[in-house]
Amino acid sequence: MEQFVNYLASLPSAVAQGVIWGIMAIGVFITYKILDLADLTVDGTICTGAAVCATMMTLGFSMPVAMLCAFVAGMLAGFLTGVFHTSMGIPAILAGILTQLVLWSVNLKVMGIALDKTSAANLPLSSRNFDTLVSMLELEKTLVVLLIITIVLIGVLYWFFGTEYGCSLRSTGANLNMSRAQGINTNVAKVVGLVLSNGIVAFAGALLAQYQGNADINMGKGAIVIGLAAVIIGEALFGWLARHNFSLKLLSVIFGGIIYFIVYSTVIYLGLDSNYLKMLSAIVVAIFLAVPYWKGKYFSGAEHIEKRKHKKDKSGKEV
């Protein structure tokens, strides 16, 4: 019973974490869903955002300045991946991995600056010592702040992807040939998308560092999988609702993040060794990614429709 109460008490924290990772997943959504690029930079970027934010605040900069710098640092990381990919012709996945490796060194160095060492793998950022925007010690305030950030972020992205320029990004992801034929510089569009995406991911990283009270070199491990999981869960559960509205699609990503972390808390409550969680996430994501492929491979569209017709025949409602 006491365990169950603890579990219930942990849910608000799971929601907060879910929203932060959901914001990160919106970054993943931009590259994976809109631009059709699998960008692995994010595993490094989330820590870059955290490291830059924590370092700046330790050095005495104010929280808004630190978060802005984290956002810009993320954009630079995205730019690097974009240049690797478009100007140097490196496949997107490899370009992301290369930047991720670059960021590993950068992150260690950045956190070192705060501690006056050559490098550091961890940097504390407790809300007891700093004026943080979010914190696991002040959950109510944190949830309100995250709600506002989510609304503003979705609003801004809804506007951006509705503009002439935003539309050229969307068409680049959908059809490169058509986009070039209509005069869109698809390489620039891809770089802009990567910059925007990684800026958002780093911003989420800055939030995460403040929330958990430290920046850690390992905090981004598997971030892409959590991001994809949030995108996929959101789409699977709310896709039917959000089909026609872009802002609802983004919102469903946030809900995907929340559900991911609620499930996470639940399986821990049920007694699963938490070391298995990353493996489980990877398997779940792999299966969800496989579903559309299997559908296409083993059920042709025509058969599918035939089957549906057949079902209706049996029920006798419609022939």
Partner: peptide, 26 residues
Amino acid sequence: TSAPMEIQENLAIAARRGQRRTLRWS
């Protein structure tokens, strides 16, 4: 054409061929 976009969005993209794409509504 761009499949996940609306008919009118596709036309709007084509209407800006050879122009700078700005941050005005599409």
